[in-house]
Design a protein around this nucleic acid. Structure first.
Lengths: 187, 187
DNA sequence: GACATCTTGTACCGAAAGGTACAATCTAGT
DNA sequence: ACTAGATTGTACCTTTCGGTACAAGATGTC
C-alpha cells in the first residue's frame, strides 16, 4: 500500500520545518512549500491539522532515539552503547548545526500542549543512560547525577552552538562529557 | 519627564510575554493585554513595532546581566563574584521556572534577526567567567573550558527543567557547577 | 489660559493564518 | 473495464496577524 509510506515519508520533512521555525513559526504554507503537498493531502494525512503534524513529528523523533540510543543503552553492553550514543548524537544534530526539536518545543509556549511527550523524551534518555552507567559499575548517586548532567549539557551545547554559530562549541562539549563518563571518580 | 519612565516600565512586561511565547508566538494583542497599553501607545514608544520591542527587551536583559553578573566577574574579586553569580542566576531564572529569553530566541527561526545580540550575550558571559577563573589561579585552558561548560550547562538546565516541570533539576545542576568551579584540578 | 508636545483610543488596512468543502483525479483489486 | 477507495487541487471561510492614520485627550510651560 502506498498510503502509509507517503505519510511516513513526509514526516521528516515536516520535522525540519518545525525544527527551524518552532511550532508558532511554522505555517501551513511553509509546510506545503517544503513537502510539495497541498492542503488537501496534508489534511488527509493529518486530520488534526498542525497539532497532529507536530505530534507525529515528536513521535518520530522519539522513535528514532528509542531505537538508536535508549534501547542500546538499556540492553547492550554499557561502554559500546555509550560510545554509540556519542556518535549517534553528533550525527543526528549534525555537530550542532541542527537543533533539538524537543528542546525547542520545551522552551516556548508550545510546551504545555505536548508536555507529556516532551517530558518523556528527556526522562527516558536520562534513565537509559543512568542504567548503562550503573551496569558499568557506577554507584547510584553518581550515575544519576552524571546522566542528568550529560543530557542537559547536550541541550545546552545546542543552544550555545546555535547562538554563537560556532560548531566547535558542540564538539568541545561532547568531548568533555565523553571524558567525564570515562572517569566516574571525578564526579 | 514621564515619557522615558513609562517606556522603561513597560519593557519588563513585554519581556515576560516574549519569554513565555517566543518571538513568533508573541502577538501584539498579547502585549496589549499584558501591558494595558493600546497599539497607539505601543507604536508611539516602539515605532519599529514588534521587532523593536524584541530588540529593546534583549538590550534590557543584556544590561541586567552586564551590571549584575559580567561586570562583577571582570572587576571584582573572583570568588565572591562567582558566588554572586550563582545567587543572581538562581534568582533571575526563578530556580528554573523562568526561561532564558536569549536562549529561546537562539533556538527558533528568530535567531538570524537578532544574531549579533544573541551571540554577544553568551560570548561576554563566558569571557567574564573565564576572566574571573584566571584571576583565581586557573590555567588558561581549564578556565575557558569550565566557563563554557557552566554557561552552556545553565541553558541546558533551563531546557530540562522546563521540559520536565521539575525545579529540582535546576537546583541540582547549579550545585554541581558550583562544586566544580571550586575544584579546578578535577576538570 | 494658551500653546506645543506627548500620549492614547478607535477605526481601519491588506496579508496571512489555520481550517473546511468538495469535486476531480488517480490507483488497485476484481 | 469497472468500481470503491485513496489522494489531490482549488476555492473559499473566518479570524487574527502586524501595521497605519489620525483625531481627541492629556500634560507641562510660560
Amino acid at each position: 500500500m502506498r498510503t502509509l509510506n507517503e505519510r511516513a515519508d513526509v514526516i521528516p520533512l515536516i520535522a525540519e520545518v518545525f525544527r527551524e521555525f518552532g511550532f508558532e513559526g511554522t505555517s501551513l504554507s511553509r509546510i506545503t512549500e517544503k513537502t510539495g503537498l497541498g492542503k488537501g493531502s496534508l489534511y488527509h494525512f493529518f486530520p488534526g491539522g498542525k497539532e497532529e503534524m507536530a505530534r507525529a513529528v515528536l513521535a518520530h523523533v522519539d522513535a528514532w532515539f528509542e531505537r538508536e540510543i535508549y534501547a542500546p543503552l538499556r540492553d547492550g553492553a554499557p561502554e559500546p552503547s555509550i560510545a554509540r550514543m556519542w556518535l549517534g548524537v553528533d550525527d543526528y544534530f549534525r555537530s550542532g548545526r541542527r537543533v533539538c526539536l524537543v528542546g525547542a518545543f520545551a522552551l516556548d509556549g508550545t510546551r504545555d500542549r505536548f508536555a507529556a511527550a516532551i517530558a518523556d523524551y528527556f526522562i527516558r534518555w536520562i534513565a537509559a543512560l543512568r542504567d548503562a552507567l550503573l551496569r558499568d559499575g557506577w554507584d547510584a548517586g553518581a550515575a544519576g547525577d552524571a546522566a542528568e548532567e550529560v543530557v542537559l549539557g547536550i541541550q545546552g551545547a545546542l543552544v550555545l552552538t546555535r547562538a554563537t554559530q560556532d560548531e566547535a562549541v558542540f564538539g568541545r562539549a561532547l568531548a568533555r562529557f565523553r571524558r567525564r563518563l570515562q572517569q566516574p571518580a571525578a564526579i
